[in-house]
């Protein structure tokens, strides 16, 4: 720490000593923190699928509520970015709204619901239906980054399994699942092999969205704030859902249901249960554009 040599009087209080160092923070976090997060993200991009530990800061949103995704967004955001934030595919979900206003309030950047206007897309549990390209960074919020959590709890053994690419117990669990149930019953967060090396937890995105990750044009970053790790799937990377070659990977089937608002059957639909069961697109912005087209 150096003194401001231009000052005429020697500082005598702590406040004077640090006065010249306080700056308005852009994007909530101080520069050092953001730089640290970016360094971790660069490591993650260099080693696709590898969970990079980072000094996760406490955010205004609680752990488990997107603090990791938020840190990744804040570390990446620049003045020219435009941000879209969705939860379950919905821009108006209350948590998405809260996260979005935190980003815009602390940066002054534009917010949008349209994928083609956005540069950063922070999402919980969905990949937007619209195509994304090299101009997009998709930032996924991750509750549990460890894909092997179901078969092992000891953290040292987990580290060894990833380090040695010893995923045999994962394959055995898929075998057992298929034998016991006739299908592989993993619902969301389906384990995938990235760049033929690391198995990753694809956060709880539905199987519907998994094929979008394979050889994508866009960069996907995963932020786990509570578990203090980030990982990445760079563009044009192989992402293969784990399954046997004669057991096809199954995305969610809706048995021919269509969205009651826009009529689509090519998007991920969620249901409103009840006597008159109805389905609608989870991606509300996509659905709305389709209706208005």
């Amino acid at each position: 720490m150096t003194l401001d040599t231009a000052s005429h009087t020697s500082p005598t209080t702590i406040a004077q000593l640090v006065g010249h160092r306080t700056t308005e923070t852009f994007a909530l976090l101080d520069e050092e923190s953001k730089r640290e997060i970016r360094r971790a993200l660069l490591q993650a991009v260099c080693i696709p699928g590898y969970q990079v530990p980072f000094g996760s800061r406490e955010m205004p949103v609680a752990r488990g509520w997107g603090s990791g995704g938020l840190q990744v967004t804040l570390a990446c955001v620049g003045v020219d970015d435009a941000v879209k934030v969705i939860d379950q595919g919905d821009d108006e979900g209350v948590n998405a709204v809260n996260l979005r206003r935190l980003v815009t309030m602390s940066t002054g950047i534009d917010e949008t619901t349209e994928v083609d206007e956005a540069t950063l897309i922070q999402s919980r549990h969905r990949i937007p239906e619209d195509d994304m390209n090299e101009n997009h960074i998709l930032i996924l919020q991750v509750p549990v980054p460890e894909p092997l959590r179901g078969i092992e709890r000891d953290i040292r053994e987990l580290a060894r399994m990833h380090a040695e690419a010893d995923y045999s117990r994962m394959w055995v669990s898929l075998y057992e699942d298929k034998v016991r149930n006739g299908v592989i019953t993993q619902s969301t967060g389906y384990p995938c092999l990235v760049a033929s090396r690391y198995i990753v937890a694809t956060t709880p995105i539905p199987r519907w969205d998994i094929p979008r990750l394979h050889q994508s044009k866009f960069l996907t970053l995963f932020g786990a704030g509570r578990e203090k790790r980030v990982y990445a799937i760079p563009p044009y990377t192989d992402v293969e859902p784990l399954t046997f070659e004669d057991v096809p990977f199954e995305v969610e089937s809706a048995d021919g249901a269509t969205c009651r608002l826009c009529g689509s059957s090519e998007s991920f639909l969620v249901e409103t249960p009840g006597k008159q069961e109805s389905w609608s697109c989870s991606d509300t912005a996509w659905c709305r554009r389709r209706r208005n087209a």
Binding site: W171, V172, Y175, E176, K178, V179, F244, E245, D246, V247
Partner: peptide, 24 residues
Amino acid sequence: LALGVTAGGNIADPLTASGWRNFG
């Protein structure tokens, strides 16, 4: 052996470990 795994599953272990990917 892994006691919590089926007999077939215990055999699937070394097979998948050496690269077998066909369930049948």
